[in-house]
Write a protein that binds this DNA or RNA. Structure first.
Length: 259
DNA sequence: ATGACAATCAGAGATTGA
């Protein structure tokens, strides 16, 4: 089973780029972030024509997550538990049925800038709620994963110019600590389970020639439960996508599981 | 020191992103 995550930065703007990549990469499941669309306006047909079931959790203008699945999909839930007043669409879960059932969580973790301020407070609060859901997910002792745009640079080797990010919400000690607390519950970073190579990024800013200078950061991650990590056979970043026509500023990352 | 780039909503330019 191949499961991908891709922050597309707007479904309307990314339709050709996304369908082209889906045709080539052919993931069984794709977790999308920043669809920037309400559910009613999400263009379902192109994906359904490709054989994908479409499950969205959108909002107007900003955020929004979705799951595309060629496999049977069950028990879809929307929203990160823990705050009934949170109206931002950043979390969606479902169970996809391959040879084994996998619980997948697609997430768009808040950016948090500027620091300090309410947006950073929201980020840390959101991560505390995610920690609770991550802990709960482990108790099932089943294959499950949490994937998406974490807006976290885990370590300095995950940025071309780490010092440029040290005061940023993506890399501040409190941000990294909150991320580590989640990982330390017992999750495996799928990408780092496969390689320790530096210079592997999932985001390059549109500005200042960041892509040409490889001024990137690794902020899109797959965290696996122990039972999912046991099934991991591959994890790669499709960085070439970034050089195509009208690209997202993120590129896809994917895992292959024996499931 | 600033803007650079892109998307959205709206129908100009502010807001958001990372």
């Amino acid at each position: 089973m191949k499961i991908a995550s891709f922050n597309i930065n707007g479904i309307k703007a990314r339709l050709p780029a996304l369908t082209d990549w889906l045709s080539e990469a052919a993931p069984d499941v794709a977790l999308l972030q920043e669809i920037k669309s309400v559910d009613e306006n999400f263009p379902r047909e192109p994906f359904e024509d490709m054989g994908y079931a479409v499950e969205t959790h959108g909002q107007k203008s900003f955020n929004g997550v979705a799951i595309l699945s060629k496999l049977p999909i069950e028990d879809v839930t929307r929203g990160l538990p823990g705050d009934a007043d949170d109206e931002q669409a950043r979390w969606i879960e479902a169970t996809v049925m391959g040879d084994k059932a996998i619980r997948v969580c697609g997430l768009y973790l808040p950016n948090g800038n500027p620091v300090p301020g309410p947006k950073y407070d929201y980020k840390l609060d959101w991560m505390q709620r995610m920690h609770a859901r991550a802990a709960e997910l482990l108790t099932a002792e089943e294959p499950a994963l949490m994937a998406g745009d974490y807006n976290i640079i885990p370590q300095d080797e995950d940025a071309k110019n780490p010092e440029a990010w040290h005061e940023d919400a993506l890399a501040l000690p409190a941000s990294r600590a909150a991320y580590r607390r989640i990982v330390n519950l017992g999750y495996t970073d799928a990408f780092r389970a496969r390689t320790q190579a530096p210079g592997q990024y999932t985001f390059w800013d549109y500005q200042a020639g960041a892509r040409n200078r490889n001024h990137g950061i690794r902020i899109d991650h797959f965290l696996l439960t122990p039972q999912a990590a046991d099934l991991l056979t591959d994890c790669q970043i499709d960085s070439d996508i970034r050089d195509r026509e009208k690209p997202s500023d993120h590129v896809p990352i994917w895992v292959r599981l024996s499931a």
